[in-house]
Design a protein around this nucleic acid. Structure first.
Lengths: 212, 212
DNA sequence: CCGTAGTTTCAGACTTTTCTGAAATATCGG
DNA sequence: CCGATATTTCAGAAAAGTCTGAAACTACGG
């Protein structure tokens, strides 16, 4: 790896972090490099800077494209692909959150929706399903919330953050000003029988996993 | 694995997701199982339910304890450890976000703080450091914000979510009601020379990675 | 169409992580 | 202190994930 120490530390750190964020080390490093680079880079620049194989860089760039995290450009009389990270760091955060939602929240929501349509066969299953219902409610709310918030422009978002916990004071004001009218729900993707969770309090015993 | 189909799907799904959330498959499965279980479980219940080794369960439970995600209890005349997931799913979300912050944001912040204290040796490094400064500002704001928001109780948090993007309308009200007085900053952990980033516009060339 | 400059794919080598069984450790009642 | 029960540790086996070099592919100018 052939980089100024300042940049090298940064790049190595994001390599490590990459692991936790669901991408591999090289992808993290490539992104870190693009992030601090004053101009767009071609794949071979990255190969030289990071000292990894050409093919590894190619795969890494492909993955970053799948995450919508890089911008691809071309220069006149040069058919190489030039890659760069968006200037606006808030845009990057939005993209990250959005992609993560797509990969983590959305599949979980559909799994839960399906599970909630099953008919429980035991008290154990009934309880499990009830827990799933609560989790579904939470994740659904978070999902909607994010769809909303994503549309707020950067400036407002910064303002919102600066507000911090004093947001509660604003909420009190909101109560008084009656902003809390019921919000419209996005059209449900599956049949809408969530609430069919039954009053049937079947007391069948023997759902204790300890029991032989 | 020996579970009702409804629960099995759920458990397997969280096993997969576990990977993305920085824990391994077994840890995800154990947590899913505890989450839907009507009563606390001992390690051997989990071994039987998931069909994994006793030692694997022991390590998984240890990790969940490190994440503060499980509650450990005892029963009279029984010295086995009984594990359960907290009832309140918001509490679980808070814990998850908090632990993630601790593992991802905080180390990155200290890396950035150190990098920002270095003196850039080239125009390339100067630019890189400027980008790092922007990133540091963002992450620092997010970190403070989370420290604030974590203290908001569940009910308010739900209210905040239900508000969704209409939060901007509330913010407009906030503007008028003058809630935006400057907030106090937590004491800085390092010396406070962030802004010393120099007007010295040294134009040294040769920091173009394309150059041979 | 051919040669060149560039990018992508992929099988297998290599690295890292996870999981297991066996042994070590801890704790309690007697 | 012993024996019974419960938990933890750990070295190595197994599995999963990453990275590479070689080959395949693509697009373009001549």
């Amino acid at each position: 790896m052939n980089l100024p120490p300042l940049v090298q530390t940064f790049v190595l750190h994001f390599g490590e972090m990459g692991g936790r964020w669901g991408v591999n080390r090289t992808v993290g490093q490539i992104y870190a490099l693009l992030f601090v680079s004053p101009q767009p880079l071609v794949a071979d620049d990255i190969v030289e800077a990071l000292g990894v194989s050409r093919s590894n860089v190619s795969m890494g760039l492909k993955e970053l494209q799948a995450w919508n995290l890089v911008r691809l450009q071309h220069k006149p009389n040069d058919r190489r692909d030039y890659y760069s990270a968006p200037e606006d760091i808030w845009q990057i955060v939005r993209t990250l959150v959005e992609e993560r939602k797509k990969r983590e929240i959305d599949p979980t929501l559909s799994m839960l929706r399906e599970a909630l349509m099953e008919r429980p066969e035991s008290e154990y299953e009934r309880h499990a399903q009830e827990r799933m219902r609560v989790m579904h409610e939470l994740m659904d709310a978070m999902s909607d919330w994010y769809d909303d918030v994503r549309r707020i422009e950067t400036e407002r978002l910064v303002q919102l953050m600066k507000l911090g916990s004093r947001i509660t004071r604003v909420l009190e004001a909101a109560d008084r000003l009656n902003f809390m009218s019921p919000r419209k729900k996005k059209p449900a993707s599956a049949t809408d029988d969530d609430h069919a969770s039954s009053d049937r309090q079947e007391q069948r015993p023997g759902d204790d996993p300890d029991e032989p």
